[in-house]
Computed example of a mutant assay.
Amino acid sequence: MIVSTLHFEYHHILEELKGSYAPFEPNSDTIAAKQLTDDILQTKQ
């Protein structure tokens, strides 16, 4: 039961990390829905 709980917790963290990294993915084949300006990127850091 503990192994399953840890697995799902880390899976959730991994999915959040993937979502956060997606706008910066250099090999992405998709077009960003919203172009981020330098000002917006600076405030998100």
Score class of each variant (00 low, 15 high):
1 M>F: 10
1 M>L: 15
1 M>C: 13
2 I>D: 15
3 V>K: 12
3 V>I: 05
3 V>P: 00
3 V>N: 12
3 V>E: 15
5 T>A: 15
6 L>H: 13
6 L>E: 13
7 H>Q: 12
7 H>D: 10
8 F>Y: 14
8 F>M: 10
8 F>W: 14
9 E>V: 13
9 E>Y: 12
9 E>W: 09
9 E>K: 15
10 Y>L: 14
10 Y>F: 14
10 Y>I: 02
11 H>L: 10
11 H>C: 07
11 H>I: 08
12 H>W: 11
12 H>C: 08
12 H>R: 15
12 H>L: 09
13 I>P: 00
13 I>C: 02
15 E>Y: 03
16 E>H: 13
16 E>G: 00
17 L>Y: 05
17 L>V: 10
18 K>V: 08
18 K>G: 01
18 K>A: 13
18 K>F: 08
19 G>S: 07
19 G>Q: 11
19 G>D: 09
20 S>C: 03
20 S>Y: 04
20 S>V: 13
20 S>F: 10
20 S>G: 01
20 S>H: 08
21 Y>F: 12
21 Y>K: 06
21 Y>Q: 09
21 Y>G: 00
21 Y>E: 08
22 A>S: 15
22 A>Q: 11
23 P>V: 06
23 P>R: 02
23 P>G: 02
23 P>W: 02
23 P>H: 01
24 F>D: 07
24 F>M: 04
25 E>K: 08
25 E>A: 11
25 E>M: 03
25 E>L: 10
26 P>T: 12
26 P>H: 01
26 P>F: 04
26 P>D: 12
28 S>W: 00
28 S>H: 03
28 S>E: 07
28 S>C: 07
28 S>T: 04
28 S>F: 00
28 S>P: 02
29 D>V: 02
29 D>S: 12
29 D>T: 07
30 T>Q: 12
30 T>R: 08
31 I>M: 05
31 I>A: 11
32 A>K: 06
33 A>H: 07
33 A>Q: 14
33 A>L: 11
33 A>F: 03
34 K>E: 04
34 K>D: 02
34 K>Q: 08
34 K>Y: 05
34 K>R: 08
35 Q>V: 12
35 Q>Y: 06
35 Q>H: 04
36 L>F: 13
36 L>H: 12
36 L>T: 05
36 L>N: 06
37 T>I: 00
37 T>W: 04
38 D>G: 03
38 D>W: 03
39 D>W: 00
40 I>H: 00
40 I>F: 00
40 I>K: 07
41 L>W: 02
41 L>G: 01
41 L>S: 06
42 Q>I: 09
42 Q>E: 11
42 Q>A: 15
42 Q>V: 08
43 T>S: 14
43 T>Y: 03
43 T>L: 09
43 T>R: 09
43 T>M: 11
44 K>C: 08
44 K>W: 07
44 K>Q: 09
45 Q>C: 03
45 Q>G: 01
45 Q>E: 04
45 Q>P: 01
